[in-house]
Structures are given as C-alpha cells and as structure tokens.
Computed example of a mutant assay.
Amino acid sequence: MALLLLQLIAAKCVFDRVVLPRVVVWCIPLLCYAGAHFQLLNTPAFLRMVALCCVLMAGMKWVVYAEWRRTGGEILSWSRWGCFACLWFGMDPAPWTRVRSQKQWRNDCFWGAGCLFVGVLSVALLAYFDCTQLQLLFVTMSVGFHYGALRLLVAFWKQQGYGVRALFRNPLEMRGFADFWSRRWNLAYSQMMARAVLRPLRAVCGRRGAQFGVFAISGVLHELAITVPVQAGYGMPTLFFLLQGVATSLEKQGGLWMAVLCGVSLVVGLPLLFPETFVEEVILPARNVLKF
C-alpha cells in the first residue's frame, strides 16, 4: 500500500514540474513492483496477485501522467488527480481536465447493472456445479466485472460530469484483430500503450515495428500480473501476445472472417494467457467467493 501511494503522490509532485527520461520513468515503477513482490512472497497467491496488480496499476498511472505532461497535457488538480489515479481504471487524463454535462450515464447504468447481475448469477451457478472450464469462467467473470461493475463506474463518473468512456465494448462487433485490441477490449490498456509505447517506438521502429513492440511489452506486463504472482507458467502470456501481435501485423483488412479467426484464436489461446496454476490459485478461489 505504501509503494502504491508513493508512486501516485510522486507522479503528481514530479511530473507537474519536470520531465524525466523515459528510462527513469519506466524503471521506478518496476523497482516498486520488485519491492512489493519480495515483500509478498509468503502471501496467498490470490491476495498477492491483487496487491501486485494494484502496484502495477499505480505504475501505469505514473507512466501515463509522465507522457501526458511531456506532450503538454494540462496539470490536474490534486482532487482530480486523486479521482483519476485511485478511483478510475482508465489511462486517459483528458476527461479529468474539465466538467461538462453528460447525458448518457443512465444508459451506462442500465447496461452495467444488467451485466453485473448476469455475471454474478452465472459465476454463482458455475461455482455451485464446481465448473473448472476456463473459457466459461473467464466469460462469466468478465461479463460481471468488465461489462458490469466497470460500466457502473463509467455511469457514476459521467453523472459527476466527467466524459469518461466505457473501457470494454461489445466484442461481438469486432472486425478483426486490430479492431478487437484497439477498440473493443480494455481500452484503458490501449490508451496507456498508445501513449507510452506506440508513439515513442514509432519514431524508432516504424508503424509495424512499434505495433509489434506493443504486443511484446504487453506480454511482459501480463507476466507481472499473472505468472509472477503464482510463480509458474512463465513465458506463456508473452507467447499469447506475440502470436496476437503476429496476427495483427499480418492482417491487411478487417472483416467477418478476420473477426471469426480472432475469436477462435482468443478462445483457443486463453490457456496460454492463464496458465493452469493461475487458474487453480486465483480464478477458482475467485469463483468460490460466490459458492452457495
């Protein structure tokens, strides 16, 4: 907790005034993560994963705010920085620079509440029948959290006047690999990678090289969130993202068949992203929270 708060407070104090080299900007959150990892070695895997992901999230906020200020982004007040950094999963500071009337929050509230109800009920049923099928568990948990709880959070901040956007959009409307990863799934992560990785790499590696670099770095960051907490399955999330990066790079034009191919690759590749040990020590305990 101390490392998490330290990163968030330091980001505001430092980047409001100075511009640090990118190497330093990235190294500091990684050092904080390493410190948290060694402190939590004897903690149960599920709690260790939650704690390390929180430290990692704070590090992402640190990196994003550094890039935001580097490109002339407006300084956020302490109150708005606190809301953006601690109470929002998105990685775009722009909505927090001004307050405007938002008209769509009721629609977000309706869909968020519906998805949360369906997701919680579905996970409870899977827990009751002791289902261990990864794809089913992931989809139902995702409906409840990504499309339910996070959509309700969108509704709350819109009602407060901040123009935040849904971070997870209907994947059934995707048109292929590039569309899924950039416009459908986890836009918070897409926002961070576009600002902190894609733009700096594009000047060095070109568009395709930078795009593939985004997937490679995504693999490493998911290792920190998935395999390091359970200390098993190293390399599998990185392989998953490298394969997705290759497919995205080779994709020339999106369409129905590319969408189908992307969907199949995600379903088949899910065990790569979430190794067996992670399923046993994190996903199943999360499922059992709702066990009758």
Rank of each mutant, 00 (worst) to 15 (best):
L31R: 07
G82E: 10
F292C: 14
P171N: 02
P21G: 13
S218R: 04
L3Q: 09
L5P: 14
R98P: 10
T140F: 10
C13I: 11
L30S: 09
C54F: 14
L152M: 15
S249I: 05
Q159V: 08
E67S: 13
P229L: 04
K12I: 07
Q244C: 01
I217D: 00
V268S: 00
R287S: 03
Y147P: 11
R183S: 11
V214L: 02
I28M: 12
T71D: 14
L126K: 09
G254R: 02
V19Y: 05
G235K: 01
L76I: 04
A196D: 06
L136E: 07
F38E: 14
A11K: 01
M60T: 08
P275W: 01
G59P: 01
C54K: 14
L3E: 12
R80Y: 11
M60F: 09
A124H: 12
V204R: 08
A113L: 13
L150K: 03
R70W: 11
S122Y: 06
A232L: 09
A247S: 10
Q135M: 09
S190K: 10
L5V: 15
G119K: 03
S101V: 14
G163N: 08
K158P: 10
L4T: 12
Y189N: 09
I28N: 09
C86E: 06
S218W: 00
P200R: 11
G161K: 07
A2I: 15
R287N: 05
S218M: 02
Q244N: 02
V25H: 05
F110E: 07
L239E: 04
L270T: 07
S142I: 08
S122E: 02
L150E: 04
